[in-house]
Design a binder for these strands. Sequence first.
RNA 1: GCCUCAAUAGCUCAGACGGUUAGAGCGACGGACUGUUAAUCCGCAGGUCGUAGGUUCGAUUCCUACUUGAGGCGCCA
Length: 461
Amino acid sequence: MSRQVLSSTPELDTQVELRGWVRSRRDSKSGISFIALSDGSCFDTIQIVAQNNLANYADILRLTKDCSIIVTGKVVASLGEGQHIEILADNIKILGFVENPDSYPVSPKRHTVEYLREVAHLRPRTNLIAAVMRIRNTVSYAIHQYLQDNGFFWIHTPLITAADAEGAGELFQVTSLDLNNLPKDEQGKVDFKRDFFGSPTFLTVSGQLNAEAYCLGMSKVYTFGPTFRAENSNTTRHLAEFWMVEPEIAFANLMDNALLAKSLLKYVFKTVLDKNADDMGFFAQFINKDVVTRLEQLVNQEFAVLTYTEAIDFLLKSNKSFENEVSWGIDLASEHERWLCEELMQRPTVVTDYPRDIKAFYMRQNDDGKTVAAMDILAPGVGEIIGGAQREERYDVLVARMQEMDISRETLYWYLDLRRFGTVPHAGFGLGLERLISYITGVQNVRDVIPFPRASKSANF
RNA sequence: GCCUCAAUAGCUCAGACGGUUAGAGCGACGGACUGUUAAUCCGCAGGUCGUAGGUUCGAUUCCUACUUGAGGCGCCA
């Protein structure tokens, strides 16, 4: 609508109909009002010129921000400075006034993101949130496009699972039992045989294990959907419900995996720059002046790549005093990750080959006996946006590792089967959609880049 | 889960060593002016000072608890 009108430079004198919400109204006593109209389809508003010969001009003078209207009129060259065309209205139908403009929650002024979270149902009418969501749409579409163009199949892995996939993170339990009247077995414990699925079930924390099954049959697959973690994380980069992309490639090692991750990110960055230049310009003006230039650089520049062991060396030689002491074997703390990508490398940084003792059971053990073929990609200002690994494809090694880490081989028998029947080297990663969007837009809290955030103590709307 | 900070007008904040009428900006509303565009200028309205207790002659101000929000850490995407 307004995007079509604004981007296509339509013929002058074309008759158009536009529907949307009033962003602002300015009147001239000479009997003319200017309405900035938005339908959310693009950043720019379109200017409607309403003259006092309109039958309902008295009502038009009462229009305030976010009143909804349908305008019919003619595309004309603008006499003013800010735009090349405008719409000379010959009819403005008012669909809905705003009842109480003095206390309307998203009045035409700057609001904090914290406040906008409290009115999450109305924040799509702000420049900030609408721009974020247009970019979220572009990013999601670009991810699908890149993977589809490169031979990946989108696999819809289940959201309800019986197994705690990675042993990582608290799970949300799914049940249809009456919590006030739980059935008990002979030992007095809850009898999950009488639950809907006949066993305890949970919301998934990752589609990876299921994706591996399809990878080892269809070669290149990915999952893209919501995942859930019941961790009481109170930070700017955690959500209880978030979206994750998890590609999984067969006949591949860690370097193939890293290459895919980097190419995918570059494609997404380039697509956003091409498609959402106006939205990005807004973020550069109001959120972080570097967001556009850093994306442009990244499209052409290589990411930094270093091993965990090299990273530790850099940290030890940095002469910086960290709160958490650095030594080989520690899990990198946020401050370490931040220093590596923000100060040392000053760009997204791939860290590979972490100590085996701090990583998940399914990661492939390296020949040194100390490390696994894992990789994280760290983004300045956001931290880890990608975590991935080459998977352990050797049955015996995997079984031994599960034993060591006390992971149930009974519930994951099917995952082990994949190593018994035609196993192949394979690798994959998880990309946090919200963290990626946060990095692209400069919007610091992931709660502001998802339409309705779910976090601990917060599931409104 | 741990630590720190905050809560005063629709929003963002200031303020009172505890004492008559709690201030500003933005927004809203009214007016002036103008092919305007974060318009400009003038004016007006708008407050149970988060909730519950406590101390006190008196609490929005001090204390305690609670609630909510934010940031940092941990976990991770």
